[in-house]
């Protein structure tokens, strides 16, 4: 995908998220714009860095890392950025993504319908096993180091 196209998709998705944000939260459309513009710029920068910096590190790593560094308490602008993006609800960012995902899943539905019930049973057990297994370990260790 060309970078201009990427930017276009980010802008469209950002707009859709702002709509979701207005409908789903108490935040207004205009007050969420600065935060959304920051997120779009950050996502674009990260994708671009992933393309130009050698080493094969995917763009998503840059996006998350830079977003994290810029908002660590004490970093200049951190408070301003946090305040701006706090107007953009993260659940409302997911709604458009999962709407696209829903439409896109149609591609996999045939394969899903063909896969045997055995795989579906095993999948559910795998999801539950991994989730509960991880939760047990997290719980024990958080307790042991006194975080909860």
């Amino acid at each position: 995908m060309k970078m201009s196209e990427t930017l276009g998709v980010l802008l469209i998705c950002g707009f859709l998220s702002l709509v979701a944000n207005v409908v789903g939260t108490k935040n207004g459309f205009v007050e969420a714009i600065p935060g959304m513009l920051f997120l779009i710029a950050l996502a674009f920068l990260g994708i671009w860095l992933g393309k130009v910096i050698p080493g094969g590190i995917p763009g998503v790593a840059y996006v998350v890392t830079i977003g994290c560094i810029l908002t660590v308490p004490g970093v200049p602008c951190a408070a301003a950025i946090s305040a701006a993006v706090s107007k953009v609800g993260f659940m409302q960012l997911c709604t458009p993504i999962l709407a696209y995902a829903g439409v896109a899943i149609c591609k996999d539905l045939d394969v899903f319908a063909e896969s045997s019930w055995r795989i579906v049973v095993v999948s559910c057990v795998v999801f539950v096993g991994t989730y509960i297994g991880s939760a047990i370990i997290a719980q024990l260790i958080l307790k042991a180091i006194g975080q909860i």
Partner: peptide, 20 residues
């Protein structure tokens, strides 16, 4: 084909959640 890019906005938001 768009899914990968749309996820990036969410990831940006997650970065700003992890920072503070």
């Amino acid at each position: 084909s768009l899914l990968g890019v749309t996820l990036m906005l969410l990831m940006a938001r997650y970065g700003t959640l992890v920072g503070p």
